[in-house]
């Protein structure tokens, strides 16, 4: 026995006398402050995350309960009611929202995709590209009300009246950065091989972009456009004093007149929520339900496109 002990290079009995290893130190016990702190923090974080989700469920629940009771087909075909009137709907607001978001998309999508092409393909590392990217980021954090102020100063004051065009221009400023930044990202994601193969076949830059890059990046670009549309559809602040509000249809005498005050779902919710009439408040909830349904659907479709 003694032979075996001396053959071990480190004399073990010496260590035992110097360093006492308390095996209890290595145990995980709730009585230790370290472990207890760990458990408390974990439960707190879980609790906080659950609390953070309460508003989402609460909003959805209230929309379904309070908006759902007023839901009917008449909402889509009738005009907003006057102060003490019963019934009514917001067909004109739905049309107004669609038209203004359409105008905004017509402006911002070609604009955004062309500048994204410049950023991603034509001159990705030029100084101009860096400045454009910075401008995109500035516009992302741009307060939506200031887009309305800008459209008021540049369109409403020039044309002399509130109009759907002014509302569309204000919304397009809010859509533009989303379109630019996501389209640039999507074009970047196209594998270099595909791009180089097109150029190697003798395609010009325009043919490469038009026939190879944009079709390949299409799902990503569409995601960006969808997210931008969803955001624009829910915006209220830029429309308050550019499109104003109207109790009448946008189509008058069989033709679409874009140069008149236009109603939108978001502004309708804002205006009606401040009214002291039960009927208007119910309509505001119903409009909010429809708006959220549209916005969330467009959002989810957009997100599912990019995941494929």
């Amino acid at each position: 026995m003694t032979d075996i002990v001396t053959s071990v290079p480190v004399p073990s009995n010496k260590i035992d006398s110097d360093i006492v290893i308390d095996s209890g130190e290595l145990e995980k016990s709730l009585r230790r402050p370290r472990t207890a702190f760990n458990y408390i923090m974990s439960s707190l974080t879980t609790l906080v995350t659950i609390i953070a989700l309460i508003p989402l469920f609460s909003v959805v629940l209230m929309l379904v309960v309070r908006g759902g009771q007023r839901l009917s087909l008449g909402l889509f075909t009738q005009l907003p009611p006057a102060a003490f009137e019963h019934g009514g709907g917001f067909g004109n607001a739905i049309v107004g929202t669609l038209v203004m978001v359409g105008v905004a998309a017509l402006i911002s999508v070609p604009f955004g995709i062309l500048s994204a092409t410049y950023l991603a393909e034509v001159a990705p590392y030029s100084r101009l590209s860096n400045v454009v990217r910075m401008c995109g980021k500035i516009l992302t954090g741009f307060p939506s009300i200031l887009a309305g102020v800008f459209a008021y100063g540049s369109v409403v004051l020039v044309t002399g009246g509130f109009s759907a065009i002014a509302g569309g221009i204000a919304l397009s400023i809010l859509m533009l950065p989303t379109v630019i930044l996501t389209a640039e990202e999507a074009i970047h994601m196209v594998p270099a091989k595909i791009r180089e193969a097109a150029l190697g076949m003798g395609a010009t830059q325009m043919q490469t972009v038009w026939m190879v890059l944009l079709p390949t990046a299409f799902p990503g670009i569409l995601t960006g456009v969808m997210l931008a549309v969803a955001r624009a559809a829910g915006e209220t602040a830029p429309l308050l004093f550019t499109a104003l509000f109207s109790n009448y249809w946008l189509i008058s005498g069989g033709r679409l007149d874009l140069m008149q005050p236009t109603s939108s779902l978001a502004v309708l919710i804002y205006n009606f929520s401040a009214m002291p009439f039960q009927n208007q408040i119910e309509l505001a909830w119903a409009a909010a339900l429809i708006l959220v349904l549209v916005v969330l659907t467009v959002n989810l479709i957009g997100q599912s496109l990019s995941r494929k």
């Binding site: 508003p55 989402l56 909003v59 929309l63 209220t236 602040a237 919710i269 804002y270 909010a288 708006l291």
Partner: peptide, 10 residues
């Protein structure tokens, strides 16, 4: 994604 006007109403 929920529009701010809906948060206001809520």
């Amino acid at each position: 994604a929920i529009p701010s006007v809906v948060y206001g109403l809520w």
